[in-house]
């Protein structure tokens, strides 16, 4: 399995796990693709055979089922699996909180569980902030006074779902 294939499978699986689109998670022109950092973290923290099992299971699901049925298959084949399930749930935490929690496979994970912020880049890109249209402590791109206006009603919360409706960053005149 090539590294590009690994990344594609990781992003595809992550899209189902997080609810964000693959384009949101790994924009075509991102100068600092956090998906690559997360995959590298996964590969560094989890035994290689289990990572391979996780990604190939997703790849099989993607090949055999239409998109609408894939989330249910991920639930059945991955999240309920005693080995892959905890890893998948830790991937969700990593995407939303930018943290890889240790001990995820031995018991419940809480906010006080030991873990590692993946990188300074990842810290600024946690999906939790996009989901709530907020920003992490110490880092905000939002313009001065943003708190005086209501959040946007739509779900275009990430740069990846910018007004062009595509992560490729196009829309140029």
């Amino acid at each position: 399995m090539s590294s590009n294939q690994d990344l594609d499978n990781f992003v595809g699986l992550s899209a189902i796990l997080t609810g964000f689109s693959a384009d949101d998670l790994n924009p075509q022109f991102s100068p600092q693709p956090v998906a690559v950092e997360y995959l590298q973290t996964l590969q560094a923290k989890v035994a290689a055979p289990l990572v391979t099992q996780l990604l190939t299971t997703y790849q099989t699901i993607a090949a055999q089922f239409p998109a609408a049925e894939q989330p249910a298959q991920v639930q059945v084949q991955i999240l309920t699996d005693p080995q892959m399930g905890p890893v998948a749930r830790n991937i969700i935490r990593m995407w939303y909180l930018s943290i890889w929690y240790d001990g995820y496979d031995t018991g419940p994970v809480t906010g006080f569980s030991p873990g590692t912020v993946v990188s300074s880049n990842a810290y600024t890109k946690g999906l939790a902030w996009d989901a709530m249209q907020a920003h992490p402590m110490g880092y905000s791109e939002m313009h001065y006074g943003y708190w005086a206006t209501p959040p946007q009603a739509d779900d275009s919360t990430d740069a990846g779902s910018s007004a062009n409706g595509n992560s490729s960053g196009g829309g140029q005149a």
Binding site: P27, P31, Q133, H135, E141, M142, T149, Q152
Partner: peptide, 20 residues
């Protein structure tokens, strides 16, 4: 900006610059 159409009133108006 790699995401030039990011909304100026949204959470990421800077458009993910390259190089960062």
């Amino acid at each position: 900006p790699t995401q030039p159409n990011a909304s100026p009133t949204g959470p990421k108006p800077a458009g993910d610059p390259a190089p960062p």
